[in-house]
Amino acid sequence: MPNKSAGLTGRALAVYSKDMKVELRSKYAFNAILMFGITTLAVVSFTLGQSGLSASLLAALFWIIMFFAAMAGLAQVFVREEETGTVLALRLAADPTAVYLGKLFFNLSLMILIAFVITPVFFIFTDAPVDNILLFVLVLILGIVGLCAATTIVAAIISKAGIKGALFAVLSFPILFVLLLLLVSASTRVLEEATLGGIALELQGLVAYSGVMITASLMLFKYVWQE
């Protein structure tokens, strides 16, 4: 752990690299999210058949898979601290803002890694045509940022509560609903016509959503983190 004199970026990066080290030792969260995603994907693809699915159905399926994959493992970053009893040490070693940013970056890298695996497999399984890959990747990245922005503080909340597993999805869904709606709408249009101008409204909404959620989390996180 760094001393308190290091800058905010330095302190956040220290929390991030600590979490990365812990994750690389066990790979628990990564495996949980990845296998959950692949399993859901296989079930969906197997039951619906290979081709001929409409763009809106494909977009909805893709984001439902991503949502449940995220629900399977994103809480781990805080639950782990509670289970191993390292909360107090981390609370002493770093300030709330640095902890929040470190954990947010950790969840972001986790989801981006997962998306790297799940997205190609999704397109192979469903045989969906994508004309504009760059635009789809842009929506995907904004979606992952939004997912992590909204769920990181919820993960911190549920790590202090009794029943953790079910509560994470219950608390996250109402907040993520708007995001999922925007993402499904944007992805549908990307799969259908693939122009940047066609999804301008959704892109604005996605950026605004992530901005609001991260700002609010930075302001509220200390009330969750400190006893």
């Binding site: 503080i153 608390l171 609903f177 708007v178």
Partner: peptide, 9 residues
């Protein structure tokens, strides 16, 4: 915290 966060939606 949850009530405030949820109100932002």
């Amino acid at each position: 915290v949850y009530a405030i966060f949820a109100f932002l939606t």
